[in-house]
């Protein structure tokens, strides 16, 4: 299931290696994918990652910090109430796109 999805994600991204690192996405990639994916975070973390309440803002956070946190949540290294469950829903490529988008948002 997971590998099928990874394959599908790679195919959709147009390249099997482009997003493995936190480098800018190539032109063939939907330029709004990061924005669209990051919009899922807004319900708890605020529009464009800017929280208006107790939960942490993600806007302006360096991408590598967000990527590492999501990895640690997924692997159970960071204690969480809910993020360990949500982090497992996204591929490394998707997390990178989300993190890169949020990094560029004003704090």
């Amino acid at each position: 299931m997971k590998s099928q999805y990874l394959l599908a994600a790679y195919a959709a991204l147009g390249s099997s290696f482009a997003l493995a690192q936190t480098v800018p996405a190539p032109a063939t990639v939907d330029k709004n994918l990061g924005r669209n994916l990051a919009a899922q975070c807004a319900n708890c973390h605020g529009s464009n990652g800017k929280s208006v309440a107790e939960v942490a803002s993600l806007a302006g956070v360096p991408a590598n910090v967000t990527i590492q946190k999501m990895k640690d949540y997924r692997d159970g290294k960071l204690p969480a109430t809910i993020m360990h469950q949500l982090a497992k829903g996204y591929t490394d490529e998707q997390v990178a796109l989300i993190a890169q988008y949020l990094e560029k948002q004003p704090k």
């Binding site: 605020g46 529009s47 309440a53």
Partner: peptide
């Protein structure tokens, strides 16, 4: 409670 404030603002 934080969720409510953020999603209403969203």
């Amino acid at each position: 409670n934080s969720w409510a404030k953020n999603i209403w603002a969203d």
